[in-house]
Design a protein around this nucleic acid. Structure first.
Lengths: 189, 189
DNA sequence: CCGCTCATGTAACAGGTTACATGATTTA
DNA sequence: TAAATCATGTAACCTGTTACATGAGCGG
């Protein structure tokens, strides 16, 4: 039951609508959590019922009305308890890695295509996270910001996301090169 | 339904018992997939029923009997189809990152303790993956091995796991330093 | 006028986790 | 003698995914 805590953490910076939360989770909140809109709407409803978040209706004219949510004191207490309790080890689950594991036994054409696409996505994400970091720290240096900034949580998690995507990009590039070279060597044989 | 493909990929290198598969997945098969024993025994049973793997009984004396499984031709075909189909984007889901995201609003004592433990685990895993890589490539250089080795899939995925754990370690160390320094600064205030 | 963005859900199903269950052997 | 390893499962429950459903405005 950690999705709820991810939602609470995402709401710490201010009021968001279900839609905005969904967008944040679709990108992956700094790449550390992903969830679908349906799950989030459901979770927000549940959180509100339990009093961990509170929503207020905002009437709009050219857009459908929306509900902006914020974390309540009870919500903060819940987050506090969550942080104090033991975390499960992180896990990565990646279809692409399964495919690469089997690379010696299957055709690699489609695999290389997918690795290429993944590399593109990773590239885009590094740019995105880079921008986000710059925006968060403003005109301060990273050192300065991390020492004296008043909201460093998102910055730190974004750093992790950036490193992850950079490694992703490097690994995809390397793996593509290896698979391609082997294919050419085989076709020469 | 990708667990089954992860299992098939894990069985490509030779016969394994359910218990051995479970151990491989408990560490995380090169850190790209994690699953619990119960799930794996169930999956193996299903895979056998569908003819994607075949098992043979091995009678042991000082140990309970076991069943060793290997991938069948139908299993290979299934893997081939899986590789050709589109993969879902990878996602990371990490409780610890949720906690760090909320770090400005909660007590950081327990958090730092967990980050420290995570760093230790990451350190241990880098060592483990380093060993595994050395074992896989034998006395060849990495370049040599990746060009001419006949089973490079596990090597490539292990490289990804190693990079992941290295980044993990760096990030934990950095985050701990930041949180500790801020706490000391606050207590001086 | 087609597709994207904003805005919110329900229902059925597939997948994963937790708890329970057993029992012999080897190692510290 | 207590704990870890080998060895395999079942059942109940919780979580997450997929498909379906609706509808108005805005930009090209």
């Amino acid at each position: 039951m950690a999705l709820r805590h991810a939602v609470l953490a995402a709401l710490l910076d201010g009021e968001l609508s279900g839609y905005q939360v969904a967008k944040a989770f679709d990108i992956g909140v700094a790449n550390f959590w992903y969830a679908q809109p349906q799950q989030l709407y459901a979770e927000l409803t549940r959180l509100e019922k339990e009093g961990l978040v509170a929503g207020r209706e905002v009437v709009q004219e050219s857009r459908p009305n929306k509900r902006l949510f914020h974390v309540t004191d009870a919500g903060l207490a819940e987050l506090e308890a969550f942080t104090a309790a033991a975390a499960k080890p992180a896990f990565v689950r990646d279809d692409l890695l399964v495919k690469v594991q089997a690379a010696d036994h299957v055709d690699t054409h489609a695999l290389v295509a997918e690795l290429t696409e993944r590399a593109t996505v990773a590239q885009a994400k590094t740019a995105l996270f880079g921008d986000l970091l710059r925006r968060l720290r403003g005109d301060r240096t990273e050192e300065e910001f991390l020492r004296h900034g008043d909201r460093i949580g998102p910055y730190l998690t974004c750093l992790r996301g950036l490193a992850f995507e950079r490694e992703n990009l490097d690994w995809c590039t390397r793996t593509i090169a290896v698979l391609e070279e082997r294919r050419q060597a085989r076709s020469r044989h």
